[in-house]
């Protein structure tokens, strides 16, 4: 028994002797497969990607573990989760050597974390079951969509949080009234984007909160327009994803190299077809992006200071409106 306990402890410790990256599900099965071999061949060190379902859960885990964490990098926080990470003080500031490669509008004032991709979230629908898609937030309340929409939980999912903020950007303080009405049309609320997309693909749900590039994804993989985004007349909402160094890392130099690698042309060129987001540097976009990602006329924004000040309040109001 004693021996078994020692083996168990060793197995746990040894499995974390490489650079450890906390992230979300689809990253592990996607972009991570490109990053791991190139990182190993460049720096002679292995990199382990550990997924916790979605980005919010990965961040929560990091906060719970605090200085005992084995994580060196957290990958996939969006601008809103970054506020939470800042509040708990678990990231180390690092301005990448290659920061000038980042598009100017996306460059942060303080490099608490580095942006590596961005895109607009969107309402995505199944074209086989929804013939007349919603074109506005008001349309989403139509009774014909009763129990057909699935959204992500803003408390655990970065996509879900962006959608909540999108409704704040559209309706201001009255956003809870909108959610109370939307509740009737919700089939369910999932903890992450992957779970929601699984429901869309399996035909359980017809509409979900996803990304503007989903149409391009559909054409690329299925050569069909099964899942298409719809451009909302109130305006769209941008999500930026960041990679940050964990304050407690014992492999700082290696962690810095990981950040630089994320900004390299090699990784940035992979972003569109792996992440289905836009690269943050000026690399060439694949044809399917140029053809099938709809043009957006109006982008909505929220002042980060306002978000930082009100986020907890908005989430509690959302919980109350949904009875969560």
């Amino acid at each position: 028994m004693k021996r078994l306990v020692i083996i168990l402890i060793l197995a746990t410790v040894l499995s974390f002797s490489n650079l450890v990256v906390y992230t979300y599900d689809s990253m592990v099965s996607g972009l991570a497969k490109d990053i791991a071999p190139i990182f190993e061949s460049l720096y002679g060190e292995k990199v382990s990607f550990v997924s916790f379902g979605d980005a919010g859960k990965a961040l929560s885990r990091l906060i719970i573990e605090g200085e005992k964490t084995k994580a060196d990098i957290i990958l996939g926080l969006d601008q809103n989760l970054l506020l939470k990470a800042e509040k708990y003080g678990i990231l180390m500031k690092y301005k990448p050597v290659n920061y000038t490669k980042i598009k100017e509008t996306l460059r942060p004032k303080e490099y608490l974390a580095t942006p590596f991709d961005y895109g607009s979230i969107a309402i995505v629908y199944n074209t086989e079951t929804v013939k007349n898609p919603p074109k506005s937030f008001k349309d989403l309340l139509d009774p014909r969509f009763k129990r057909k929409i699935v959204v992500e939980d803003p408390r655990t999912s970065s996509t879900g949080l962006s959608f909540l903020l999108w409704t704040v950007a559209v309706y201001g303080e009255k956003f809870t009234d909108y959610w109370k009405k939307l509740k009737e049309n919700l089939l369910t609320i999932t903890s992450g984007w992957d779970e929601a997309f699984e429901m869309l693909e399996r035909g359980e749900a017809d509409i979900m909160v996803s990304y503007l590039t989903d149409g391009a994804y559909s054409y690329y993989y299925y050569k069909s327009a099964k899942f298409l985004p719809t451009v909302m007349k109130e305006g769209m909402f941008v999500q930026i994803e960041y990679v940050g160094i964990v304050k407690y890392t014992k492999k700082l130099e290696l962690a810095k190299r990981f950040i630089e690698l994320m900004l390299s042309d090699y990784v940035q060129e992979k972003i569109p077809l792996r992440q289905w987001m836009f690269p943050v540097t000026d690399v060439k976009l694949p044809e399917v992006f140029q053809k099938y990602v709809p043009k957006v006329e109006k982008m909505l924004e929220l002042d980060p200071k306002e978000v930082s000040k009100n986020l907890d309040k908005w989430i509690s109001e959302w919980e109350e409106a949904l009875g969560m």
Binding site: S15, G53, D194
Partner: peptide, 18 residues
């Protein structure tokens, strides 16, 4: 905390993740 998986958690993760 996602660092290791058992059969039940692996099935759950697969079924909720496309």
């Amino acid at each position: 905390g996602g660092k290791f998986l058992t059969f039940s958690s692996a099935v759950y993760r697969l079924m909720s993740s496309r």
